[in-house]
Structures are given as C-alpha cells and as structure tokens.
Design a protein around this nucleic acid. Structure first.
Length: 600
RNA sequence: UGGGGUGUCGCCAAGUUGGUAAGGCACAAGGUUUUGAUCCUUGCAUUCGUUGGUUCGAGUCCAGCCACCCCAGCCA
C-alpha cells in the first residue's frame, strides 16, 4: 500500500489514483502538446483576445456522434478548460431536411455521458436566422452579394473546373434594389426551390473554387425542427458558420482538414460585414475595440482501422439492417461504445493518447482496446462466468449437507481491497469452460487434462481422473477429485501451474453472453480495391452464447455495470436487453492473451 | 497542365529561437503472480519521404524531386 507520504509528495502526479474524483474532461496527465495549444498559448501571450479562450463544438443534428466526434469534443472542451475558457455546444442546423430532434437529444446525451459541460444554454445556428438574414441584406446593400437565377446545373457549368476558371453569372450585376426585392421575396416564400439563390460576389476566376461566388442562401420549402415553417430560405454552412462563431465570440474555431479551403471564405464573409453590427449582434460584453474575429484552425480527423467513420456509411449500416441500430455495440458511435461497455474515461484517455495533428493518420484499434482495458483493469470488479460449460463432478467431495453448502469468499479485485469481497458457494458439481480441458494437451498447456491438476480460482486444486464422453466422443463430464488441503495454500511437494475459473452448478445463474468482435475483417474497409465497404463486414462480429453459467453474485448487477470475467475479458450488463430474470452481458473487450500466441 | 495540405520507429505522436531524435500502442526477453491478466525490469529510429545546398553543426533553414490526402453540393 502507498504511504501517505507518497501521496503528499507529488499531488499532481497522483491524479490518476483518484478513482471517483473529477470525472470531467480527461485530466489525469499533463496537457498534451499540440499545434493548436501552441497557437492558443501564443494568442494568450500577445493578448489577442484579452486572455479569453472560447471554443465550440458544432455538430449538425443529422446522425449520432461517433468516436471521431469525441476527438473534437475532447479537443474543444479540453483546450477551453485548461485555459480557463469556455466551450459552447451549437447545433449547426442549417439543412433541416436531414436533421431531427431525435438526433439533437442523442447528441446532448452523448456529450453529457462523455463528461463535458457546455457553456450556458445550447446554441442553434437556426436561432441566428434573423441576424443572418439582416447580414445578408447588408452584403447586398454593399454590392457584395446578389441574387442569381441560374439553375443548379447552370451554376455548375459557370463555376468552371479545378483547372479552368469560372464565368460570371449573367445575374451578377443586378442592381442593389433588384437584389433586395428578389431576396426579400425569396424570404417571403414567393419562389420555388432552385429558381434563385443568393450568392456572395467574390471572384469567379479564383483558383479556390469556394471563392467563385459561393451560394450563401438557398430556397427550401421545408419544415425546420426548431423554427418550424417560418423560413423558406436557409443559409449555407459557409455563410452561417463564421457568423455564428463571431456572434458567440468564439476565439478559436476548430474544425477538420477538409474545411481548409473554406477558410478564405470564412474570413471573407466576416471581413466584409460591418464589424460594429457584428459586435452588436454578438454575446460580447466588452466594447467594439476589443472585439476580435474568430480564427479557423483545422486538424486531422480521426480514423481507426477495421472501422468506418463516415456518417453516411454508419447511417447506411443502420438503415439497411447490418447492425441493430445506432447504438449497436459494434458501432463506433458513442452510444454503441457505451452499450458495448466502454467507459467515458477510457474514450477521453484514448483521445488524449491519439493526439492532435494535421497529418491524416489511421490509429490502430489496439489503442482503443488498450484504453478500455487500462481503465477496467483498475475499476471493474472481478467475477466468474463460464461461457461454454463442461460439467465437473468432484467424486471425493461430500454430498450436500443439511447445513448448506461451503461458502467461499473471494476478493472483488486482486489489488484494490476496498472493493470488498463476494461470496461463492462451493459444491460437488461444478462447471468449467470447455476450452480449459484437453484430452491430449498441446505443448505448454497449463490447464486440465486427464491425470493432471489445476487450481480452481479461489478454491481447491483438483485432478482429473476420468472423462465421460458422448456417442461422438466429445467430453461431457469430468470426474475429478479435489485436494481438501489446498484451500488458500499451495500443495506441498508439487507445483500446480494452471488456474481456471469455475462456477458451482446448482447455484450458477443462466445468462446470455454476446461476444462482439470488430465489425469489419479488413484493416481499411474504405479501400477502393475491396469494392463496397460492406463486402468486408465480419460475419462473426456478433456471436450470441446462451446457457452461460455465471456466479450468483452477478444477480445483483445493474444495467451497464462492468465486470472482468476472470480469464475471459471485460463484460457489461446490456443496458436495454438485460432483465433480472434473463441477464444479458456484452463482451467489451478480451483480456490480453499471450496463450493464443504461444499455442499457434 | 489549378488551388490547398501532409510526409519523424509496424501504428499514433512530441520535437520553442538550427546543437546532436520525448512519450504511448504494438512487439520481444526476463521477474512477480491462485486471472497464460495486471504489475515490474530491459530491449526496440546513427535516423527524420528523397536528392542536393547553406552551416563548425539541420528533423528543424533553402532549392529541386517523389508519394499520398482534400476541393468543381443550391450538404456539413
């Protein structure tokens, strides 16, 4: 045990030993070093924002959050927290047809589960529609935006290609009056979808296609989950996002690499708006003179091998029934990982370990597995559960006595005594796992085989005397004898190497165990040479085992409770399908396993 | 044949102003162990995509080359 001196010697280094301490925002290690934190440090030094750090996490509510979002969440909230700043949650809801309240609710729940707290009320880009509309009028009056009446197809032709410049729209030089008239009528719902759009007047010859008079408003006669039927026009991302950031006084607008080419547009919009108006529309409580525009900074999105991360593909897996929902334990969604048994701390740690950079990279799934093992090894109580039961009868163990069974006490954790002990009856008839017996033991096999001994974890040493087989020659029962002198002590004069888990037959509870494995069998399901990513779906990503035998103490386990089933892995009680009468456990991850390496 | 990016160990990733390659994962070898788990110890890039240049000295500066990623939605 640690002495109290050890604790007082270095307070900051011992954060990790603080089990149920501050569960918020991965704070066990010193803040990671990355280019974004460097930029912020610099801005703090130069006093660019008066020492203020304000970030935001801006999901579009068109799907569930996945672990890639967790990277962004940890970054945005983490960077704000360690600089005494704040992070907003803003729904980027400018394209209502793909969005829904269901997604908004799920996203909120996932962020809370991850352990982060957003600053103030939840924000919505849609809450800024009035302001956005006024700013559009301002651009029009300044001759910096115009109503274009090209069809989407025509607009594409006018835009030019990657290597050839575009051609100005014939509507580019409409008068301010005409533009205002048309735009006002667009907003009044007078026109059908597609007949007009509002465009920023920038440069059709720009080598950056985003600057070739991008559309900033389109006509969409659809219901919006927040604003109802108020608007027949909706702003585009490029236009709404930068203004929303500015209105929320965001200092550092962090996004992924694919928006790099949009940065000039982000800056153009803000720089072409009247700063005083922007300031007035913003959250700022200081004067205009200290009002500084936000800076967009891009970082690489998260990729993990053996999985897909695009929302489109995840949605497809759900919609076409390849998985059982957004929260299927095989999904890389936060709700899926949660249901699988991942703790939020493990995900935060994973994000810290992965780091932030600008190079596109593919993280090994092993890193995620390490993060959850690392957490659960320390925090998960141990228990025994036999997945593929094989009956064992201890021929020399007394038959049931009237006093009831012999009851053993086992520690819930090998190191953490504070986790207490659990009771487990011992009996003449037991179950062990079928894989812990081999009639013809392979080299270095340390488990049970005819004539050899093993230790039953937390109980006695037993020896296999006889194998009873069925008609096909498969072992169905083992007749063993136990050594009564080996409870809590090693036998004298011989060494018993193997230790196996077991469960008393008549006191065990029947449970269902779902064995999950990676969803894809190829490292890169997106590889074009595979064809469709669904071709490499792993047919064994889910194997359901029924009739598993769990120790009776598990009966009390609550939904989502995580355990280490000794020698098998980490498992959790399924939060939806498990009932007291029919418990269901999900395998979160296996234990590290050097035996299968040795044996193969 | 346009523009914007990225290239440091098998996988991530630090490398402030040029001064002689952090850390994690994985892997390997030992030790402890009533989980073939955990834990502990040790090992694991004379080299930073590549070729040249500047310099006493370059992953860090300069030039050329190569590879890969992103962009032509009235999606985000």
């Amino acid at each position: 045990m640690k002495s109290s001196d050890t604790f007082s010697a270095n307070s900051s280094a011992n954060n990790s030993t603080n089990h149920n301490g501050d569960a918020v925002a991965g704070s066990t290690a010193p803040a990671p070093s990355n280019f974004i934190r460097h930029i912020i440090e610099q801005d703090l030094q130069t006093g660019k924002h008066n020492g203020r750090v304000q970030t935001r996490f801006p999901p579009e509510p068109n799907g569930y959050l996945h672990i890639g979002h967790a990277k962004s969440i940890c970054l945005n909230f983490g960077v704000a927290k360690s600089n005494n700043g704040f992070c907003n949650l803003r729904f980027d809801d400018t394209n209502p047809e793909k969005e829904s309240q269901e997604f908004i609710n799920a996203i909120k729940a996932d962020i809370e589960w991850l352990g982060f707290h957003w600053s103030g009320e939840i924000r919505y880009a849609s809450a800024y529609f009035d302001a956005l509309y006024e700013f559009a009028l301002q651009l029009i009056r300044a001759g910096k935006a115009y109503v274009c009446s090209l069809s989407p197809d025509q607009a594409r032709e006018y835009r030019g290609t990657l290597t050839t410049h575009g051609t100005p729209s014939p509507y580019r030089n409409r008068t301010v009056e005409e533009n205002i008239d048309l735009f006002t009528r667009m907003a009044a719902g007078e026109f059908a979808e597609g007949v007009h759009s509002l465009r920023a007047k920038i440069d059709m010859a720009s080598p950056n296609i985003n600057m070739r008079d991008p559309v900033i408003y389109r006509i969409r006669h659809v219901h919006h989950h927040q604003t109802g039927d108020k608007w027949p026009i909706y702003p585009m991302y490029d236009y709404a996002h930068c203004i929303s950031d500015a209105m929320e006084c965001i200092t550092h607008s962090l996004c992924t690499l694919e928006f790099e080419d949009h940065r000039p547009l982000y800056d153009w919009i803000l720089q072409n708006l009247d700063i005083a108006t922007l300031h007035r529309a913003s959250d700022s409580k200081e004067g205009v003179e200290s009002y500084v525009l936000p800076r967009q900074i891009e970082f690489a999105r998260l990729n993990i091998n053996y999985t897909v991360m695009s929302k489109r593909k995840l949605k497809e897996l759900v919609m076409q029934g390849y998985v059982k929902g957004w929260d299927d334990p095989r999904m890389p969604t936060l709700s899926g990982l949660r249901r699988r048994g991942f703790t939020s701390a493990s995900i935060r740690n994973f994000c810290d370990r992965v780091g932030i950079s600008r190079s596109e990279s593919v993280v090994d799934l092993g890193m995620l597995e390490h993060s959850i093992r690392d957490d659960l090894d320390k925090s998960a109580p141990r228990a025994m559960c036999v997945l593929r039961p094989l009956k064992v009868t201890l021929t020399n163990y007394p038959l049931d006595s009237l006093d009831g069974p012999e009851v053993l006490e086992l520690s819930c954790h090998p190191k953490e005594e504070s986790m207490g002990k659990r009771k487990l009856p011992f009996a003449r008839e037991l179950f062990i796992d079928a894989s812990d017996f081999e009639e013809i033991p392979p080299p270095q096999y340390k488990r049970l085989s005819p004539g050899t001994e093993v230790r039953l974890r937390g109980a006695y040493v037993i020896r296999c005397d006889q194998v009873i087989k069925d008609a096909e020659g498969k072992p169905v029962e083992l007749l063993c004898s136990y050594d009564a002198a080996t409870l809590g002590v090693n036998p004298q004069g011989r060494k018993v190497q193997g230790v196996i888990h077991w469960v008393p037959a008549q006191y065990a509870i029947d449970v269902e165990v779902r064995i999950y494995d990676r969803l894809f069998s190829k490292e890169n399901p997106d590889d074009k040479t595979i064809g469709d990513y669904k071709e490499c779906l792993n047919p064994e990503s889910l194997v359901t085992l029924t009739g598993c035998k769990a120790e009776p103490s598990l009966k009390l386990a609550a939904p989502e409770a995580g355990f280490q089933f000794e020698r098998e892995g980490y498992f959790c009680v399924d939060r939806y399908d498990s009932t007291p009468d029919k418990m269901v456990f999900n395998r979160t991850v296996t234990l590290r396993d050097s035996w299968t390496k040795i044996s193969s």
